[in-house]
Design a binder for these strands. Structure first.
Lengths: 156, 156
DNA sequence: CAACTTAGTTTCATCATGCAACTACTGGAG
DNA sequence: CTCCAGTAGTTGCATGATGAAACTAAGTTG
């Protein structure tokens, strides 16, 4: 089959994330949702994407538990799409993408916005990886280990 | 045209990142490259993807300055694909994706690996967002600001 | 140089994407 | 109640992207 090779059953957590977030529009929809958008029409006009694709993506995000449909909010009888905790949990991913672009983009002058902390208005610090005890880690300081089979439970 | 709507000229840094990293395989190729893979055949057999797609993705990643082709390394006259600094800079993105999956996946028992710090063998701490002065920030503590037009330079 | 491996490219069927047009429902004016 | 405009989606169709397998070409081994 050609079906875009779902990574759903892959054991790698990165692949599993990509299965939910990895297509063209999903992360941008989530970005707008984090920014406060909720209605179909808002997403559609802000992102300028085709409505059928938006419809399919919203449904997929709802199926993945990233968005949920809420019945109303502004009185109208229409539907809204709001982020679940799982959806809000993608924030570090978006920040990482943003910071990567800010640091490495070939045309940084074309980037229109910066992420700042609301209180001081100063740029957010770069994400950093730390050990449990707080030591700063570089990629080389880390490794991937098989998961310790969390507590026997028909784990074969 | 249907050409998958390039985000290259979008002013949003997230969209710009996705333009380079946003397709199905790119981040997985980068993950394997961070893990040490370098050769076409290694990627192909490890990821199990079609060779034409791998070929196209590698070329795109090279064009984006994420990978570079190096002439050799193990003596053979073949080519290698090695990460550039820009490519290694994607590490936080991969960590963020991994941690999101670890925290929110519906079937966490299927995740086979964990990321640990090499020295202690303990899981890496969750990425956290901090202000310049070190305050821990939640999404709500941040906002997006227009970029301050970095220092006049034919900026219109 | 014959056999095998590595690194791709080509071919072809199928799926996904994107635009435009169409349908369904809501709410308000008359 | 009906007409009209706006919102929310679905359907149809052309085209491009994807994937499996076959094919090509160069490197390497014997």
């Amino acid at each position: 089959m050609v079906k875009r090779t779902s990574f759903e059953s892959d054991a790698c957590p990165i692949a599993r994330s990509l299965d939910a977030l990895g297509d063209w529009w999903s992360l941008l929809i989530i970005r707008e949702a984090l920014f406060g958008l909720r209605r179909f029409g808002e997403f559609q006009s802000k992102l300028g994407m085709a409505k059928n694709i938006l419809s399919a993506r919203l449904r997929a995000l709802v199926d993945h538990g990233i968005l949920a449909t809420a019945p109303a909010s502004d009185g109208s009888a229409y539907q809204e799409y709001v982020l679940t905790p799982k959806g809000r949990g993608t924030f570090p991913i978006l920040v990482a993408l943003r910071q990567w672009s800010e640091e490495f983009d070939d045309h940084p002058e074309e980037i229109a916005t910066i992420l700042v902390d609301r209180e001081k208005g100063r740029p957010v610090k770069k994400l950093e990886m730390r050990a449990e005890d707080g030591r700063l880690l570089s990629p080389a300081d880390t490794m991937v280990k098989p998961r310790p089979a969390l507590r026997r439970r028909s784990v074969g």
